[in-house]
């Protein structure tokens, strides 16, 4: 059968490329992307180049305790951002702390995201009692203040990087589950999903091959913003003394450890880790926010 009305397709650009192009075009995004890149690279790589390993008690000396920024140690090292009460180089501590913070933020967000996506999808596709049960659990978790739940949990299971990650996952997966369920529900009603069932595809196949890829946008955008809030939560918990152990200080714990000396004028112990935390969260938020605008289909 030949058809004279065959028209060539309208455009050749897949959506994704257009989104990336839009992201790159915006200068403020460029700035925060670069800032983020620098932070991630320094956070993840530079610790090996740092002056000292702040986890290794033998690499620093109490003799250098609480030196101001720029001071020189008794053996000739320069502490650009000063030292803390144990004589640790603040710059090294911040670099290592940033790595801990980033790691906690990324891992906990990733795990919570996977759990939330699976739960939300299952609820939307199966419906009925299972949906009711899953969403009750979600409502229950979201009903409590995040910090309180995490605090109580850590008070019970103790400190540790893995335990902080666990606590953050427990309080955050429900967010993703709720968003995923609502987007998946609206996808589920679309005709291509009916067509998939009509063609005899299994439920898991329809869930993961058809509904999921079309429901991820919203939840991924939220996740980029949630990385920042996971890091904030970790910092808060560590500041309150239930987060990471003193031997592996994160930015929040560094701020806390300098807190006692703020009033006596040794501001740098708290101040510089605080600034680093602020920069990290700010650029993560900025990128997440721009990502949301770029992914918004109404703008295209």
């Amino acid at each position: 059968m030949s058809d004279p009305a065959i028209i060539q397709p309208i455009t050749d650009t897949p959506q994704r490329r257009a989104i990336l192009r839009r992201l790159r075009r915006r200068p403020s995004v460029k700035g925060s992307l670069i800032a983020l890149l620098i932070i991630v690279v320094t956070g993840l790589l530079l610790p090996s180049l740092a002056l000292q390993n702040p986890y290794d008690l033998s690499s620093f000396s109490v003799m250098d305790s609480r030196l101001p920024p720029g001071a020189e140690s008794f053996d000739g090292q320069v502490f650009l951002l000063g030292t803390d009460q144990q004589g640790r180089d603040m710059l090294s501590a911040i670099l290592y702390g940033m790595r801990v913070s980033l790691m906690v933020g990324l891992i906990s967000t990733a795990v919570a995201l996977v759990i939330g996506i699976c739960v939300g999808l299952t609820a939307a596709v199966l419906g009925g009692r299972i949906e009711t049960l899953l969403m009750r659990i979600v409502d229950f978790i979201l009903g409590f203040p995040t910090i309180l739940v995490a605090l109580v949990m850590l008070a019970m299971i103790g400190r540790g990087v893995d335990k902080v990650i666990f606590a953050i996952v427990v309080v955050q997966w429900a967010n993703y589950a709720r968003i995923m369920r609502s987007t998946a529900l609206s996808e589920r009603r679309k005709e291509y999903v009916e067509a998939a069932f009509n063609l005899g595809y299994s439920r898991p196949r329809v869930m993961f091959r058809h509904i999921m890829p079309n429901s991820l946008n919203a939840v991924l955008v939220v996740a980029t913003v949630q990385i920042a809030s996971a890091i904030t939560l970790e910092a808060t918990l560590s500041f309150l003394g239930v987060g990471v152990p003193v031997t592996e200080p994160s930015l929040g714990l560094l701020v806390a450890s300098g807190f006692d000396y703020l009033m006596s004028g040794d501001y740098w112990i708290s101040f510089y880790p605080g600034v680093a935390l602020l920069l990290l969260i700010f650029s993560l938020n900025l990128v997440g926010d721009r990502l949301r605008t770029a992914l918004d289909p109404k703008r295209s």
Binding site: K190, E191, Y192, L199, G200, Y201, H210, P213, N214
Partner: peptide, 26 residues
């Protein structure tokens, strides 16, 4: 079934070839 809305009845993330091949494979 042939659906009313040709914009909603095809999975936007699948290439036409995969849309047509999937039933054969499944």
């Amino acid at each position: 079934m042939i659906f009313q809305d040709p914009y909603a009845s095809l999975n936007p993330r699948q290439k036409v070839g995969d849309i047509l091949a999937e039933p054969l494979r499944v």
